[in-house]
């Protein structure tokens, strides 16, 4: 029966000291009773293998001991969804902030050193992620203990719940601002930044490359189109697939123009009475070089804008298909069930 004693000792290791002897005494009695009954049934003293089989059927010591312990978890089922949500949000902003850092390395590091800079940075990125995860887990573990004692999550008020948000509804204030800003921009663009012209700022004269004409017309057209779209949205303040698609087209056109602008060596020359022509040429060259370097950042911003627009199209189309062909507009009141 040495095997039984070893089994009990292994169970006892996981039990709280205050209850250990009591639980083990009872388990010991149960095991011995079972073994005796089996001996009586077989008609011979049990072999080592038979004892081993009996103990195996009872389960691993840690599992047996675990049944006697109170159920404990670092973060319980009540807080776990919140924990997961916070992890996702923090993970997103963590990755976003590091993406900005990575972009800065690409933009501001001399060309030859970019690879080294990124290699060093990858190490920080991989190790650094464990710090926020650890801090959040610790905070939630503490919160779990507090929740168990104070039940603070159970104290809530229905009237304090946030209002229902319909993402496909457009805020009139936003569209009004958009329309006014679009009009002001279009007017300024039309009068101050004429195509094929130089821009005069105090005594400084900036002369643009011939391709400036495309940008001028392009941005003027986009500004006017956005103003019209904002006016329509103001009158009918909910997204439709057509208007969401129109917004995507205008954003994409603006994005393409912007990316092209950064790569177009748009500043042809600059001059000022007090500026040495050679110095002016250096500044012009540096300006165009930096614009070209910012190009990757511009592409990322444009991809982000396109993703937001595509998400809106999908969301609107999905909402429409869920509501069916006889759907009422999302801003109209729905009858209460």
């Amino acid at each position: 029966m040495e095997l039984v004693e070893r089994y009990l000792q292994a169970i006892g290791f996981w039990l709280p000291a205050s209850q250990r002897q009591d639980i083990l005494a009872e388990l010991s009695e149960d095991i011995h009773a079972q073994l005796e009954e089996r001996e009586a049934a077989t008609g011979h003293p049990l072999t080592k293998d038979e004892v081993e089989e009996t103990l195996r059927q009872r389960g691993a010591p840690i599992l047996v001991a675990n049944r006697f312990l109170p159920q404990r978890s670092l973060i319980g089922p009540l807080l776990f969804p919140i924990y997961l949500f916070v992890l996702k949000v923090v993970g997103f902003f963590y990755m976003l902030s590091w993406a900005v850092v990575m972009l800065c390395i690409v933009i501001f590091t001399p060309h030859g050193a970019v690879a080294n800079g990124l290699d060093e940075f990858k190490g920080f990125l991989l190790h650094g992620i464990f710090i926020p995860i650890g801090v959040i887990t610790l905070a939630f573990a503490i919160l779990e203990r507090t929740q168990t004692r104070t039940r603070f999550l159970e104290k809530w008020n229905p009237t304090e719940l946030p209002p229902v948000v319909n993402p496909n509804k457009i805020k009139r204030f936003d569209t009004a601002v958009e329309a006014v800003v679009g009009l002001i921009f279009a007017w300024w663009w039309f009068t101050a930044a004429l195509p094929f012209a130089s821009l005069h700022i105090f005594h400084l004269t900036l002369t643009f490359a011939p391709s400036w004409g495309y940008f001028w017309w392009g941005y003027l057209f986009i500004a006017l189109a956005n103003t019209v779209l904002a006016a329509i949205n103001f009158m009918r303040p909910w997204w439709t697939p057509l208007r969401a698609a129109a917004r995507f087209v205008s954003s994409t056109a603006g994005s393409v123009l912007m990316c092209w602008l950064f790569r177009a060596n748009i500043l042809a020359s600059m001059s000022a009475p007090s500026l040495d022509p050679r110095r002016a040429a250096e500044i012009t060259l540096a300006f165009d070089e930096w614009a070209a370097r910012i190009f990757p950042a511009a592409v990322i911003v444009c991809v982000f804008i396109a993703a937001v627009d595509i998400h809106r199209i999908v969301r609107v189309a999905r909402a429409r298909s869920e509501r069916g062909p006889n759907a009422i507009a999302p801003n109209q009141a729905r009858p209460h069930p």
Partner: peptide, 11 residues
């Protein structure tokens, strides 16, 4: 009912 369920339940 197995013993690892019964005894904790009794307790």
């Amino acid at each position: 009912i197995d013993e690892s369920t019964l005894y904790p339940l009794l307790r």
